[in-house]
Computed example of a mutant assay.
Amino acid sequence: MEVLPTLVYINMFLCTLLSYWLWKDEKMKHKQRAKLPPGTMGWPYIGETLQMYSQDPNVFFAAKQQRYGDIFKTNLLGCPCVMLASPEAVRFVLVTHSHLFKPTYPKSKEKMIGPSALFFHQGDYHARLRKLVQNSLSPETIRKLVPDIEAIAISALESLANQQVTKTFCQTKKFAFEVGILSIFGQLNIRYREELKENYCIVEKGYNSFPTNIPGTAYQKAMVARKRLDQILNEIISERKEKKLLENDLLAHLLNFKDEKGQTLTEIQIADNIIGILFAAQDTTASALTWIIKYLHDDQKLLEAVKVTIFLRF
């Protein structure tokens, strides 16, 4: 009588083992079909992060490109990834076959910026937030800010008057940050502006650091500063609500947002999106401004044409 249950258990075990073997075999076949590009993955979890940070990242990627070509695999910040170093490959991902790819970021970066930031999402949430941001930063709105933006530019140039050499990209980043604060908050209290700048700089320094919470590391300092940014933004939001200020800046649009179900954004969602927008806009804006300055400097005829256009417009 005891033999039958034993046989049943043995059969169940063998079936489970067979199923696992078939699943493993299918998985191996799939891996063989989906070949990854050449490259090395480095150590488990750490990957090649330490190698990249031990030298100039540009040198690290240039060496990889020279050895493996324009498309290669690696592992950075705990994330296996494929690097693209040619315009054709980038166009394939971003333009012709964008529907095949989903934008993702290392968890450490999501945590630092804020998981509710719109560029970490897809679907309805992303579409609604993106439309809201576009509306709040429309050409009509920006046009009204031109006098204030001009004042920021003049102040930045005056601060450089006595410097013989300056790094253009660093200065345009500072300028982009000031304009970003203006676009998001309007005329913000100087105390809040300085506190935001101080903590944001700490977060930015730790953004590409190795994600370890050991006290004193760039990442740990950045996470502490990120929490402080939440506190500052909550103070600004509370003050805005208390005084019932009627503004037309991005913060006002975020505070007044309601979806089709009447749901508003939480303060955490608002804070994540404000920090996300600052991150998304700063480097790209600074890069564009740096190249514009270079081309205007190198081509005097172009510079004169721009001066004439500006003179005629105003």
Rank of each mutant, 00 (worst) to 15 (best):
T168G: 05
F13Y: 11
D283R: 06
Y45L: 15
Y200Q: 01
L4E: 10
K27N: 08
K27S: 11
H30Y: 14
Q282H: 07
Q51H: 14
A222P: 04
L289F: 02
S159K: 14
L157N: 03
W21R: 13
Q122A: 10
R33T: 10
V203N: 00
K131L: 09
R191N: 14
K131A: 09
G47W: 02
T40K: 13
L296S: 02
L302H: 04
W23G: 00
L251M: 09
I149C: 04
T212S: 14
F92V: 06
V93T: 07
Q51N: 15
E204S: 11
S108R: 05
G114T: 09
K24N: 11
A85H: 09
Y105F: 05
K131I: 07
C81E: 12
L160Q: 04
A225T: 01
F92W: 10
E267M: 05
F119C: 06
A34P: 00
W43M: 15
L4I: 14
G262Q: 10
F177D: 07
Y125I: 03
K107W: 08
T264F: 07
R226Q: 08
A288R: 14
R191G: 06
I142P: 00
F210E: 09
I152G: 00
E110F: 00
L18Q: 08
M112K: 02
G69Y: 05
F60L: 11
R128Q: 13
A281S: 14
K24I: 08
L84Q: 04
P115T: 15
T141G: 08
K227T: 12
I292A: 10
D249Y: 01
D299W: 06
I236W: 03
K107C: 02
F60S: 09
F120T: 03
Q282R: 10
H99W: 04
I181S: 03
Q122G: 06
Q163V: 03
F311N: 13
A89Q: 05
Y20H: 12
F61Q: 07
A252M: 10
E304H: 13
Y105A: 03
F311M: 12
K29E: 07
V203W: 02
M223T: 10
E140Y: 01
D272G: 08
V165K: 09
T6I: 10
I113N: 01
N135S: 04
E2I: 02
Q55C: 08
L157H: 02
Y68Q: 06
P115G: 09
L160P: 00
K27P: 00
S116Q: 10
S155I: 06
M112V: 01
R313C: 08
T40R: 15
T6G: 00
Y20M: 15
E158S: 07
F175T: 04
T172K: 01
I152M: 06
D299M: 07
G276R: 08
